[in-house]
């Protein structure tokens, strides 16, 4: 994908440079060349770069490229970390996309909604968090809505016999399924990002406790 994008960009650039350097009057032939150099090849470049770009927005590297997400990204990359986010990052199914796999919207318009939510994050980053020191942002940044248990349940169905045999699962089944009790809460599996919870914890339903 990348090489297709770069190659078509190079071809387009070559056509355009030749056009700019040869100061001839514009003829039918040069218009055809320009159709290639301004239309066909740049559109190829844009198309492939778009796909690669949207793909990139799902990677941990991308999420970690705003400094306030460095603690989250570093923890996920730490092979010794026992946080939920990190244990899931070590699984190949999540791997480099572990942030996205847990945090994406799983609904029908999930992809678009996730991207819109991401744009909001970028906006907030530029307007509020760009200069915030990490020590502060770790406590100031909290999840807007609790991460739905339904996201976990896309993989951990809550139907497996061994899962149901766990006493705590059995006793809290209803509140787990309807999201009143967050799987990633202090009494249960712990926070997904425990290193940010020092000082400002979340309640057991995943909401910010006041």
């Amino acid at each position: 994908m990348e090489w297709a994008s770069v190659t078509s960009a190079a071809i387009a650039a070559a056509i355009l440079v030749v056009h700019l350097l040869r100061r001839r009057s514009v003829t039918g032939t040069s218009k055809v060349w320009l159709l290639m150099g301004l239309g066909v090849f740049p559109i190829l470049t844009a198309g492939t770069a778009n796909i690669a770009g949207f793909e990139a927005t799902q990677s941990r590297k991308f999420c970690g490229s705003c400094h306030v997400m460095i603690p989250h990204a570093e923890d996920s990359g730490d092979p010794k970390s026992l946080s939920l986010a990190a244990t899931h990052a070590r699984n190949e199914y999540f791997g480099e996309k572990n942030c996205y796999t847990c945090h994406k919207d799983y609904g029908m318009y999930g992809y678009v909604l996730t991207k819109l939510g991401g744009m909001r994050h970028v906006y907030l980053y530029v307007t509020e968090y760009r200069t915030m020191p990490l020590e502060e942002s770790k406590h100031a940044i909290r999840i807007l809505k609790p991460l739905p248990n339904a996201n976990c349940m896309h993989c951990h169905t809550t139907n497996a016999p061994d899962w149901l045999r766990v006493p705590d699962h059995a006793s809290s089944l209803a509140s787990v399924r309807d999201g009143k009790l967050s799987c990633a809460s202090a009494g249960c599996h712990g926070f997904a990002h425990p290193m940010t919870k020092l000082g400002k914890e979340l309640a057991s339903d995943g909401r910010i406790s006041r």
């Binding site: 994008s5 960009a9 650039a13 301004l38 740049p42 470049t45 770069a49 690669a52 990139a56 991308f62």
Partner: peptide
């Protein structure tokens, strides 16, 4: 057409840059 060429020559590197550095600003 010359203006179009210059604009496109500015746009192409911006698009390609994001491929080599897939972080928030380039993308």
């Amino acid at each position: 057409l010359r203006i179009a060429c210059v604009l496109a020559l500015a746009a192409l590197p911006l698009m390609v840059w994001s491929l080599f550095d897939p972080t928030v600003w380039p993308v």
